[in-house]
Design a protein around this nucleic acid. Sequence first.
DNA 1: CTGGGGACGGGGCCC
DNA 2: TGGGCCCCGTCCCCA
Length: 276
Amino acid sequence: MPRSFLVKKYFSNKKPYYRESQLESQTAFVPESFPLAELPTQNNASALTCHPSSPFFTSSGALPAALSPVTPGCLPPSPLGPLNLSSSPSSSSSSGDEEEDGGRTSDPPSPEAGEIQSIFHCLHCSKTYGSLSALSHHQVSSHQLPPNAPSSQATSIPSEVSQRPAFHCKHCSKEYTSLGALKMHIRSHTLPCVCPTCGKAFSRPWLLRGHIRTHTGERPFACQHCNRAFADRSNLRAHLQTHSEVKKYHCGSCSRTFSRMSLLHKHNSSGCCTSL
DNA sequence: CTGGGGACGGGGCCC
DNA sequence: TGGGCCCCGTCCCCA
């Protein structure tokens, strides 16, 4: 993943892929039920501590509404009802294809802020420490772990990494070099944006908007070469590959090209032309 | 089996 | 610093 260089993947665990089944249970998530993210940044601990029951889930701040599968947490205020979508499918542009975004405030205040604190948990014995060094010392002395052992999740920090800011997600074992990146990542766990139609939850408002297009059938991204249109720009991009004689992904063993990386992977894993 | 579409997650960039 | 958008990538499903 060349683009994910900010993520220090020590465990190469797969990214959370929210399948329908998972999301069905996710839709009724209870924000305060999420564990706390742990950040080895004592400086900003107090500033980051806030209520996990973020008031953005409802206009009135009533948390129980967050349990509703139709809480439009990330939807802009809608005079047309909960399914107020862009009614201009052809507007389609890349920037602001949905004018009623209502500005940039459609994205709710990040609830993850309330999940951040500077407590260092040893995941081998659940002890907590107030500093990284204390935790590290504990792990070395009590669990015979090397100081830089990427043990369990979140709190065991490689020494070379600990020398610079590292922000850990407690929901998984990812680390980030910036708080903003971590907060953004945590949204993928908290999924604050809920589809008012089906209750499916998403990490970001624009993901929800894209999802809503699956309900409305809006396809703002049209192919210039054929009559097809897509709800997702990435899908259009992939489709455009099909119009190209020489496709983007080349097999290293034969001269075949593929429109998608996944097809190339399939091609390779199926044996391709010997070399594998 | 292959190709393609649908859906969506994640990080970077820009404002 | 945070939000929105873009691009890349992946997984699933279907023809």
